[in-house]
Every structure is written in C-alpha cells, then in structure tokens.
Design a protein around this nucleic acid. Sequence first.
DNA 1: AGGATGATCGTCT
DNA 2: GACGATCATCCTC
Length: 199
Amino acid sequence: MNLRRLNSGDLPVETKALAKALLGCILVRTGEDGTTAGRIVETEAYLPNDPACHAFFGKSLRNATLFGPPHLAYVYQIYGTSFCFNLSSEPEGTGAGVLVRALEPIEGLALMARRRGVERSYDLCRGPGRLCRALAIDRSFEGTDLFSDPVLWLARDDWAPARVRRSPRIGITRAADHRLRFYLAGSPYLSGPARLSPA
DNA sequence: AGGATGATCGTCT
DNA sequence: GACGATCATCCTC
C-alpha cells in the first residue's frame, strides 16, 4: 500500500483547510492485538470564535488542547458512551479544531468488528463514536502528538484525490447553518446525509 | 453538592 | 423518526 507517515509540515494549520486536507488521509492505530486503520472520508471544521466549537467559552480543563499547537489529538467523551477524535488547528493560543466523523475501513477489519460487535464493514467506522470504538481511541490519547506517537498517527498512500463536497454540520444546535462538514463525494462510508447505499 | 448539557449510538416502532 | 442510556465537564449555589 506504500504508506508514508505524515510530518508536521504536511498539513495546513488553518481549520477549514485542515478539514479538507485530512480527507483521503489514513488514520493508523497500532496495538498489542493488531493494527487498525481507515481512510478519512468525512470531517467537520470548528472554527475560532465559532459558537459550536468547544473552545467558544474559553479555555478549560477539557478543551485546553484546542488552544495548543495544531495537529494534536483532542479526544473527549460524549453522552457518557462515545468518544470523539479531533485534531487541534490554528496556531497556539487560538482554540479551534477538526472532528473526524467517518473512516473507510482499510486494515484490521476483523479486529474492528470484534471491538464494535458488528460484522459489516459498512458499519465499522461510520460515525465519530463508532470509529473511536473500532480503533480503540479513548481519553488516553488526549493531547497526543500524531507526528511522533508510536501508536496513533496519520499517513498517506497512493490514493488519488476524490472530489470534496460540503454540507451543514451534524448533530449541533448552535451555528448549525454553516456548511462546515466536508466529505468525499460518493463514499459509501459517510455518517450523514448524502451517503449512498451500502456497498 | 447538585443540576444542566451534549460534535452519539443502538434499539424500537 | 423517536427515545433512552450514561457520565465527564462545567456552572451555580
């Protein structure tokens, strides 16, 4: 597959540009029980001074990573049941980030299925909480440097870029009208509207 | 110490 | 389409 691990210079810092640039990249998670990896097919941008961004009301214990340097893992738990995986964005001092909403499973599908309790590849990583479960991403990765961590990182392969489309973000109440959700046109692995039928 | 909130998921109809 | 689970986090006493 010719994977090349990403370095800090490979990704943009600005939030919307980062959300788009992450599409097509591969998120890799190694572990004792095997490696799981998937191609990012859907992201959402949470901008500086964005009422929907966790950083909007200022720095706190939970969201401090969003104010740190760009491209750190920001992982939080939602509804007591699910984790969400984000990357911080913008220069240090500015609170913003990108949520990864869906992956196309690429490697370790059997392990993902075991962690998720479902079989169909279509269901393994479709949704921010599901992909964290499939890749065993939890709060222990909060603040992780994705360019140096031995367990969780980003990579590219020889995949040819697909067309990027945008829509309103999913599942939020504030600033819900902005089209800050980005996804790969035609991907069967999207978590929200515009997804196609199961392959 | 207690209450409200939520970038979700699985289940049921 | 609707609903409940379930809990970290933050805010207000």
